[in-house]
Amino acid sequence: MTSDGFRSYRSVVLGVAWRTVHNALTTPNLVIPTLAFPFFFFLAFAGGLSQLSHLPGFHFPEGYTSFQFVFVMLQSAAFGGVFTGFGIARDFEYGFARRLMLAAPHRSALVVGYAVAAVIRWLVVAVLLTVAGFAVGMGVGGGGVELIGLYGLALIVNSAALLWSAGIAMRFRTIQAGPAMQMPVFLALFFAPVYVPLSLLSGWIHAVARGNPVTYFLEAGRSFVSGEAAYAGVAFGAAFALVAFFGLWALRGLHKAEAAGG
């Protein structure tokens, strides 16, 4: 790509990201789910289910609040991607995507722009969640490097979820496709050891959770918080693989949207 081409690409990415973040953070209907849901789940799970930490075999020295903090962090990252996907679908349904497609010399820059927006949007939530976590006395055994590991992992999950949702949004081009974006992510998140460690799950949920990459994101994230890094390689490997796979999925979705006329 020439330097002019790069400048133009970057400009489209930043333009799309600016507009998406601007809308997400200034429209009450969009801000509320973005900010409120993660806090709410954090409070509901850490508050309502804390007795679970007394179960035999439940060993997480940093406490149940920290245990749930990791899930909520990863969940907010995944749903941040999905909610941005809703915006893409809305743009196609109401024709705004045509304006973007007409103006952008390289249309893959639009997908990258949405992805950057999803990251920025999630970072706002991540900062607030972290502050809230420490405010309610969350314990952290790991150091700075481990915490960066947790946020890095969540960031990759955010991008994977965005690319998945973008692929759906550009194939269906209607906000009615929202459940198709949300439901698989919801299931992937909850068919994992959300409330108790993997070792305490039994039956079919244990079998499903073992094959679910989210399980390894959670296990790795929790190990980062407790300062005993485990499953890090598997988790990052799986996360990058998902980004690569859903990246192709999103680009094919973009081609389908182009073929259909936006």
Partner: peptide, 13 residues
């Protein structure tokens, strides 16, 4: 369904 699977250990409380 999801909650019942994940929270089954609660019954041990």
């Amino acid at each position: 369904t999801v909650n019942a699977a994940g929270l089954r250990p609660s019954t041990l409380l």
